[in-house]
Design a protein around this nucleic acid. Sequence first.
DNA 1: CTTCAATAACTAAAATTTTCATGGTAATAA
DNA 2: TTATTACCATGAAAATTTTAGTTATTGAAG
Lengths: 225, 225
Amino acid sequence: MKILVIEDEPALLESILAYFTGEGNICEHAADFASANEKISLYNYDCILLDLGLPGGEGLELLTKLKQLKKRDGVLIISARHSLDDKLAGLDLGADDYLVKPFHLSELKARVTAIIRRKNFDGNNVIVFNEITVDVSAMKVTVKGNLISLTKKEFDLLVYFLSNRNKVVTKNAMAEHLWGDEMDLSDDFDFIYTHVKNLRKKLLEAGAADYLRSVYGIGYKFGDI
Amino acid sequence: MKILVIEDEPALLESILAYFTGEGNICEHAADFASANEKISLYNYDCILLDLGLPGGEGLELLTKLKQLKKRDGVLIISARHSLDDKLAGLDLGADDYLVKPFHLSELKARVTAIIRRKNFDGNNVIVFNEITVDVSAMKVTVKGNLISLTKKEFDLLVYFLSNRNKVVTKNAMAEHLWGDEMDLSDDFDFIYTHVKNLRKKLLEAGAADYLRSVYGIGYKFGDI
DNA sequence: CTTCAATAACTAAAATTTTCATGGTAATAA
DNA sequence: TTATTACCATGAAAATTTTAGTTATTGAAG
């Protein structure tokens, strides 16, 4: 999953990033209002971790902005104890949850997972698409009931395709989702073809129908044939 | 196991903490209402030891709070003799057991163990998984009926795997469970591999099937092959 | 002092990701 | 139509990352 961490305290930022990256997520971060504002305007995230005490601006404005932009990123407010009012205001402005500092990283993870599941998978952790099922929390994929083994990139790719089923997804969007801002989008990331190929092959070999179509010059469409 | 000790008398708190930590549990503590309230809201514990005579608030409210939060932490009330009514009220509010001061630590431990067993293992103290059985209270593990000897970490690891069988558990989650929040989760704790390896080896040597799979980049999965 | 478990450090092995080379296919324009 | 170009598919090698396995050090318990 793709997560944006907006936090100005370096130590906390680092440990959050290390934790979520270690869990296999794509993480980006912003340490001040301006860069946070830019990130949320330009990109989409599965979940945004928002610390309200930001230098350079009022964190709550970011929530307003998200609403204006009609984005549907999940937002978890990380609040210092004294800013209870901000916290409640944040929920009013559309944040999905809040967490009071200090907290355990596992608690943070649990809440982030809950938000993502609610937003992306209607509260389920299993996506079903014809003969394909994907258990997001257990990282398990079955085709016609048989478990198949995917690498992380293949898995992420499949989840991304499935949460955008029947829609054309651009190569840029895929790259952005799977590699985050480490990826220079001016590069041509041919290696995405390799991952697509490998995923495709494993699905077909397991007996799935050929749901993945390439869209010349744009990207791919995964969905009903 | 993870235990929260809510107690304001320093001497008693210390001895309880020392005792349970010495038993190999992960312990946290709170000495007043506010911090207790925060802890129980944010985190989950296998068992909470709750002394009702707390500065800063009414301890029984914590039970109400737990119920509101739909938490299922075990709760053992540590009651001064005179507060019999509170004690009974506590049981009404969902506490699992009570213990009148003064008490022997061994008595306390026995009750805590009983609560945890009831909550986590459906009243059994034995987890059975194919040819592996784990007696949680006796810390005994058998494979095909033969007793094998595990160290504390190996044992905890096995119990953790078994209570998350067939699910991918991340290295972070394992670290959090086995070492609590003392562990800096932004470190890479390679030594966890050593414990995994030792556990794996002992199980295999005792004739168990190879139930433990590593999940590249994420962690491990213990379960049916 | 000895022993054993926990941790650390390091090397080897394995798995994954990326790069590279090549051939094919679709769009575009002369 | 055909040449040209950009794009996609594939196989395999290379690079990187992650895990396994060894051995050494620390620290506590007996």
